[in-house]
Design a protein around this nucleic acid. Structure first.
Length: 805
RNA sequence: GCAGAUAUGGCGGAACUGGUAGACGCACAGGACUUAAAAUCCUGCGGACUAAUAAUCCGUCCCGGUUCGAUUCCGGGUAUCUGCACCA
């Protein structure tokens, strides 16, 4: 009987003691760097979702070692973050302590599953020796003008009086207290990711990411092409600048709309006749909670700025200006020219406020008659009522309109992105201190690099201030410092970095984790870059993945890293749902604890099941019944020892099966089709059991193939077979293409495309001989006798089809 | 609304570039072993129709098309999931 508890412990201890899976410092070997997203060590411990991703790349890593690569498969902890801080506020335990405890627990759990991580390179983002370099990168960003202070609206909880991260706003209310969340202006550190927007799109062409990941990133960056156009304001020298992707519709612009936050209002308040009404609308918009905003979709609201008119530069008509919150201050110029006939939002607004709707595009074929909604078809549209644009298709009209606008100095061609700069400040304790000092005379000055790391001070009180200031703002002693530039009294920044900071470059640190001179040595960076394969969750596609690509590109520009992109290949895993098919959550009571599984079935069964449960990239519900099947399978693998016979070559009987299996497993692992690998293993075991024999060579090859999936049991059997060296570094089995095909084949025969019989033929048999055999087949005779044969189709070794009338 | 994905037995799923649909596993049923249970082993298992067989028909979300042949390709729809969402 197989005792998984004993065996698994034995090998885990051995691996730990001997550092079996540590990467080698031999830079002449071919390398392979596999990466999984390092976990946040939460108090709940490991989730069954973590091992899905970790096992998958563990399998690839183990296979690569057997294929002779110097493998780096590292692990660490992304340990700054809110839960630890919230826990500290409630229980007055320093986040450092809970973090340490949680990490200890995670390590124990991870080791119990037998991942082949290189534990000698473990990192932790809260370690000052680590965040020293996070701070250092920030300073470089500042020096290049990519980090700047700006006043930004943030989420502010009206109950807790605290600034919240987006993740803490759930349905427009505070996650903790349920109070409404409003926008509040705050001075924040920003990172200019927008500067890299185009490169973040373009360089996706050079990497091997799943298409859906590329699509989602492009979508998020949201490039659009159009023009910025100035609309003169009547009786002033001023103009209102708008952004549009449809300059061809400008003849149909019958009014303008600016966002409630637009500076235009303050500037021209003397001209506005209904200023009180306008102010009231502005205030309402500011007070509107996130919840109301997401609710509001339906009805448009707005107020006209009375007493002011703009002039459509193409029609020279006077048009009114409105304010409305359907125009966003954060996109384009915060102002639009409204073309109600050809933009659905403008159409709805115009209908509600009885503004003129002027059609300037017709359809190539259809008669649009009275518009009941905006006509926006760019493919079939043709300009009308548009002067010099008349008769042009929309695409040509756009180009011609922009040319005209540029020639007449009314505006310019312009590319816009939805991507916004990255709000980098958090009014929080448990994060990397931002290494900046404010001096009355010199402004913001970075602390000297030799003073890094700027350590997080010890505090007793983790509560934020009355107005949402960082807890660090109460550390008056710590704040007080000298300006590194002029030496005058100055104060430190009290905001900290977001959790995304430490994870934006962690993969680089793995290459050379103990270096105290640089974030990693030049040699290590040259050798290990780029990451060959990075697997992680889809939920990080537009956050972590994009942020780290941005930082990497910045470091590339500084000449620090050798590649434009950090990750050569990116894949993602599907989520594991609870047994009821719903997302696992404590409140639903459907959480599966990995410890329980390992305890009951063992790590190998756990690993095999996670790979067998379904296609790797798709969500799959957990099943306690199915895992038992995997556990049973492993027992049968163990029991094959009872029917072991001698044999240093594959037996005739199993030769083809062995070569086929090696081929399939070798290929399927690369394609992440782990589920079919496991079913291949199961089929093999069935065959050996049926034959009541397996020879040594067959067993050994089988164990080598299975080893990445079930490393403990396979090592144990390997040792029992008399091997002194570990299986983990034996060469990966090879197959012979010619031997992957059976000599005799069952050839299906169809009549009119329906299967009617099977005949047994020799592989690559002459067609004439097969034809004769087919026509002699009794079943087939019955179908074709007396019928006219129209056609006979033979696909060699695949199928034979007879078409009759 | 935009983007992406998915749809196959009671369940999870398999099927290479268009070539035997349902591999493998779970559940279920029957049998062997056992005083008994568990474990293990063997057999069956998409549906309809016959007596259980042979034969036949239907069957991969729906409708249509291409083809000797379609889960796979094309056109049109439906449903579910994920992300983003008044982005001008």
């Amino acid at each position: 009987m197989y005792n998984f508890k004993e065996v698994e412990k034995k090998w885990q201890d051995k691996w730990d003691k001997e550092g079996t899976f540590n990467a080698k410092d031999d830079y002449n070997m071919p390398k392979w760097f596999g990466l999984i997203e390092f976990p946040y060590p939460s108090g709940q411990g490991l989730h069954v979702g973590h091992p899905r991703s970790y096992t998958a790349l563990d399998i690839v890593a183990r296979k690569r070692r057997m294929q002779g690569y110097n493998v780096l498969y590292p692990i660490g902890f992304d340990a700054f973050g809110l839960p630890a801080e919230n826990y500290a506020i409630k229980n007055h335990i320093h986040p450092k302590i809970t973090t340490e405890q949680n990490i200890a627990h995670f390590k124990e759990q991870l080791k119990s599953i037998g991942f082949s991580f290189d534990w000698s390179r473990e990192i932790n983002t809260t370690d000052p020796n680590y965040y020293k370099w996070t701070q250092w990168i920030f300073i470089q960003l500042f020096k290049k003008g990519l980090a700047y202070k700006a006043t930004m609206p943030i989420n502010f909880c009206t109950g807790c009086k605290v600034g919240l991260a987006n993740e803490e706003v759930v349905n427009g209310v505070c996650e903790r207290c349920g109070s409404p969340v409003v926008q509040k202006e705050k001075s924040e550190w920003m990172l200019k990711i927008t500067e890299y927007a185009q490169r973040l799109i373009d360089d996706l062409d050079d990497v091997d990411f799943l298409d859906k990941i590329k699509a989602q990133q492009k979508n998020w960056i949201g490039r659009s092409e159009g023009a910025e156009i100035n609309f003169k304001i009547k009786d002033t020298d001023d103009a209102l600048l708008v952004y549009t992707t449809r300059p061809d519709t400008i003849f149909g612009a019958t009014y303008m709309v600016i966002s409630p936050e637009h500076k235009f209002i303050e500037k021209h308040k003397d001209m506005i006749e209904n200023l009180d009404e306008v102010k009231e609308y502005q205030e309402k918009a500011a007070m509107k909670s996130e919840f109301e905003r997401s609710e509001l979709n339906k009805e448009k609201t707005g107020v006209e700025l009375k007493g002011i008119k703009a002039i459509n530069p193409l029609t020279n008509e006077e048009i009114p200006i409105w304010i409305s919150d359907y125009v966003l201050i954060t996109y384009g110029t915060g102002a639009i020219m409204a073309v109600p006939a050809h933009d659905q939002r403008d159409y709805e607004f115009a209908k509600k406020f009885n503004l003129p709707i002027k059609q300037v595009i017709k359809d190539k074929e259809r008669d649009l008659k009275e518009l009941t909604e905006a006509y926006t078809d760019i493919e079939n549209g043709i300009a009308i009522n548009s002067g010099f644009l008349d008769g042009l298709g929309s695409k040509d009209a756009i180009d011609k309109a922009i040319d005209y606008i540029e020639e007449n100095k009314i505006g310019t061609r312009k590319v816009n992105y939805k991507l916004r700069d990255w709000v980098f400040s958090r009014q929080r304790y448990w994060g990397e201190p931002i290494p900046m000092v404010y001096c009355e005379d010199c402004g913001w000055v970075p602390i000297p690099e030799e003073e890094l790391p700027l350590k997080l001070p010890e505090v007793k009180d983790y509560e934020p201030g009355e107005n949402g200031e960082s807890p660090l703002s109460k550390q008056t002693e710590w704040i007080k410092t000298k300006c590194p530039h002029c030496g005058k009294e100055a104060r430190r920044e009290t905001d900290t970095m977001p959790q995304w900071a430490g994870s934006s470059w962690y993969y680089l640190r793995y290459m050379d984790p103990h270096n105290d001179k640089a974030l990693a040595s030049k040699e290590a960076l040259e050798y290990w870059s780029p990451i060959d394969w990075y697997n992680g969750g889809m939920e990080h596609t537009t956050l972590h993945l994009l942020y780290s690509r941005f930082w990497h590109k910045f470091l590339y520009d500084l000449g620090i890293v050798p590649t434009k992109e950090p990750y050569q290949k990116r894949t993602s895993h599907g989520m594991i749902l609870g047994e009821n098919g719903e997302k696992m959550s404590k409140s639903k009571g459907n959480v599966i604890n990995p410890d329980d599984i390992v305890d009951e079935f063992g790590a190998d069964a756990f690993r095999v099941y996670e790979m067998f449960m379904g296609p790797f990239d798709q969500t799959a519900p957990w099943s306690m019944e199915s895992i038992r099947g995997c556990s049973k399978f492993l027992d049968r693998v163990w029991n094959l020892q009872d029917i072991l016979v001698d044999g240093n070559e594959y037996s005739k009987e199993f030769e083809v099966m062995m070569h086929k299996a090696i081929k399939k497993v070798t290929k399927d692992i690369e394609e992440m089709k782990f589920n079919t690998c496991v079913s291949t293993f199961m089929t093999m075991v069935n065959e050996f059991s049926k034959a009541k024999k397996i020879n040594k060579k067959e067993y050994e090859t089988f164990l080598q193939l299975l080893n990445p999936f079930a490393p403990h049991m396979t090592e144990e059997i390997w040792e029992k077979l008399g091997h002194k060296e570990q299986l983990a570094y034996t060469p990966w089995p090879k197959y012979d293409e010619e031997k992957t095909v059976d000599e005799m084949i069952d050839l299906p025969i169809q009549v009119n495309g329906k299967l009617r019989a099977n005949i047994n033929i020799k592989k690559d048999e002459e067609q004439d001989i097969i034809k004769e055999q087919v026509h002699n087949e009794e079943k087939i005779k019955a179908y074709i006798s007396g019928k006219e044969i129209v056609k006979e189709i033979y696909v060699p070794n695949k199928i034979y089809n007879i078409v009759i009338k």
